[in-house]
């Protein structure tokens, strides 16, 4: 097995799917000769040509909308939003159109497209290059939202997203791109969308998270092992619709649940996870469900002092796990 980083997994999934299916094409800003501002599409322009790796005009509504049109015809577009923050001009196309095409046509028309976007903070990106936007879409039936944490999951789930028969939002943590490395098999594999994954077995406290925070939780758990605190960690991977069964199982296992996201706290995905646990696990709980999240400010500021204040880190998670363990 080769060890690759998170963004190489993105690149490799795109390359394999493009090679296998001529209907797959990539469109977005700077995805061509430049290979994307983060280099996620590096080499694809050279390999598959300008007609399948389109540098679009600077217009996200068109990137999504044109992708939707092509998908309705039968193509398999993979659209890139340069930053998740810049998905906003495309929201009408995604929510009014992509999400509802199958339903409104009574299963006559479909929209098998993937929209990739780098999200998340800790990169000195300030207010508009750091946001987590998943909860804006995690209330829209018809959409699937995938947010993987490891290169293995990135590759298997991006391939699944491209093959999926419905629209998938695929959010990649931009800080994880080069920070997170992991083993990925040489042979082809695809992972199921909609399934969470236990990343660490434990007995005292359950942490449920996704994306970069998952790694922060793993680091915190490792330190706490030394204190004799055993942490169970569930990676949601698909954040909408949620894998309810996995959430219930993970929560019931320890009875003490910490939900972690770097998104703003109020209205985050963790509210939904907490609701599921509240509905199904009441008698298994030994402590109140805890949410650890970013503050309720519009976004993450630029100055390092304020960015650090906002951003999730292993220390914040470690403390929250310890508090729960001691409850």
């Amino acid at each position: 097995m080769a060890v690759i980083n998170y963004i190489e997994a993105v690149n490799s999934a795109l390359r394999e799917e493009m090679a296998q299916d001529e209907k797959v094409f990539v469109l977005g800003e700077d995805v061509g000769a430049k290979g994307g501002v983060f280099r996620a599409t590096e080499g694809l322009y050279e390999e598959f040509g300008e007609s399948r790796v389109l540098d679009t005009p600077l217009a996200e509504s068109a990137i999504a909308g044109v992708g939707i049109g092509a998908a309705m015809y039968g193509m398999k577009p993979v659209a890139e939003m340069q930053f998740a923050d810049f998905i906003m001009p495309a929201v009408n196309q995604i929510i009014s159109e992509a999400a509802k095409i199958r339903y409104r046509s009574n299963n006559d028309w479909t929209c098998p497209m993937t929209i990739r976007a780098p999200y998340g903070g800790g990169v000195h990106g300030a207010l508009y290059h750091s946001q987590s936007v998943e909860s804006l879409f995690a209330h829209v039936p018809g959409l699937k939202i995938v947010m993987p944490s490891t290169p293995y999951d990135v590759k298997g789930l991006l391939k699944a997203a491209i093959r999926d028969e419905d629209p998938v939002l695929f959010f990649e943590h931009k800080r994880a791109y080069r920070l997170v490395k992991g083993e990925v098999p040489e042979e082809e594999y695809v992972l199921p969308i909609g399934k969470a994954d236990v990343k660490k077995e434990g007995t005292d406290v359950t942490v449920i998270s996704y994306g970069l925070c998952l790694h922060f939780a793993m680091q915190a758990a490792e330190r706490l092992e030394e204190e004799g605190i055993s942490t169970h960690i569930l990676d949601l991977r698909t954040v909408y619709p949620l894998d309810q069964e996995a959430v219930i199982q993970a929560a019931s296992k320890t009875g003490k649940v910490l939900l972690v996201t770097e998104d703003n706290k109020e209205g985050s995905l963790m509210g939904e996870a907490a609701a599921i646990i509240g509905e199904y696990c009441l008698f298994d709980l030994d402590a109140p469900i805890q949410r650890l999240a970013g503050p309720d400010t519009p976004a993450m500021p630029f100055a390092p002092t304020m960015e650090k204040y906002f951003m999730m880190n292993p220390e914040k998670i470690e403390k929250a796990i310890r508090d729960l363990a001691e409850f």
């Binding site: 000195h124 990106g125 300030a126 207010l127 508009y128 290059h129 500021p301 630029f302 100055a303 390092p304 304020m306």
Partner: peptide, 17 residues
Amino acid sequence: FARADDPNSGGRQMPGH
């Protein structure tokens, strides 16, 4: 330098905003 005295945003936004 993203300092508190940045009149544009008090260091909240990137330069050029």
